[in-house]
């Protein structure tokens, strides 16, 4: 199969030259928190695109570290979010509905959103045929509906693994927004052959796994990063409204030495008056209703010029 040289999923649109967007009540920043509620299998089958664990199974350290999130970290994270009135938008491995429904019920009780993060975080989309990827998507959408009553409006591919069919298929299944593109601080239309899809900013730069594990920053340094990112977007949002997402993993943010620092971040951000504390679904809905047509028209005009 020939590989593409660029994704072809969006048009170039410099931040300085694009239509202004607004949020409810004149908010400068739409702020959302996306906990990844995940299940990692101890002994998953091999996908030729990626090994689930570096060592022969059982790879006890990385596996048990992640399991910490469900046993201990989730509850700490949830309580801090509830304290500051932040509803989660859950990036869900839907097998959690079967393995740990107690966690799903706790999220539902707080009116959190669920969107798709595949079936397991140890089952990757790489090398799936179209029929297999459809079967996975149908499983996810049905499981979320049956378990929570919610429609799957959002998508973050399981462990960020894709095929080049992924976005076309999402539009067919009525998914409204993807979290898989990192090219912008505002929602953006995604170019698909049919249907409508937008990207909603879900930041890798703010992601606890990236900052704490991959970049190796300390918990207090992460706090400074999150506050500085918010301050800049809040300033820029006076000109053109912005989105800030904090993607989380309970096994990291829910550790005792981190949770107090995270509480400090939520207190800081929610203490500003021009912040819309919201969910991925609500950001997408507002954007479709108020901005999508206008932005697409501007992008189309640019293509003609």
């Amino acid at each position: 199969m020939a590989m593409l040289r660029e994704p072809g999923l969006y048009d170039y649109s410099p931040m300085s030259e694009r239509p202004k967007i607004t949020w409810p009540n004149g908010a400068r920043v739409a702020f959302w928190v996306a906990p990844n509620i995940e299940f990692y299998e101890l002994d998953p089958p091999l996908n030729p695109g990626r090994r689930a664990w570096p060592k022969p199974h059982p790879d006890v350290v990385p596996h048990s570290h992640r399991d910490y999130g469900n046993r201990a970290g989730f509850w700490r994270m949830m309580e801090v979010m509830a304290k500051y009135g932040v509803r989660g938008s859950v990036s869900l491995n839907v097998a959690m509905c079967q393995h740990h429904p107690e966690i799903i019920e706790a999220c539902s009780a707080l009116d959190w959103e669920f969107f798709s993060h595949g079936v397991y975080n140890t089952r990757y989309t790489y090398t799936m045929t179209e029929a297999q990827e459809r079967a996975m998507m149908e499983d996810v959408i049905k499981t979320i509906k049956d378990c929570t009553g919610q429609d799957t409006d959002g998508w973050l591919a399981p462990a960020l693994s894709y095929t080049t069919n992924t976005f076309e298929l999402l539009t067919e299944y009525g998914v409204k927004y993807t979290c898989d593109l990192f090219h912008d601080d505002q929602p953006q239309p995604v170019n698909t052959k049919s249907g409508k899809l937008i990207s909603v900013p879900y930041s890798l730069e703010m992601n606890d796994t990236v900052v704490l594990s991959m970049m190796g920053k300390s918990s207090r340094h992460y706090t400074e990063i999150l506050k500085a990112n918010f301050d800049q977007l809040y300033e820029e949002g006076a000109e053109n409204s912005q989105v800030m997402c904090i993607p989380l993993h309970p096994f990291l943010i829910g550790q005792p030495h981190r949770i107090g620092n995270f509480a400090e971040v939520l207190e800081y951000i929610t203490g500003h008056d021009k912040v819309w504390v919201t969910t991925g679904r609500e950001i997408a809905a507002h954007y479709y209703e108020h901005h999508y047509d206008n932005v697409v028209a501007a992008l189309t005009a640019n293509r003609g010029s």
Partner: peptide
Amino acid sequence: MSLPEDYLQYPKRGHGMD
């Protein structure tokens, strides 16, 4: 290379651990 069909089967997908 494609994935075997059982890659989308989950025999341990039930309550509790796997």
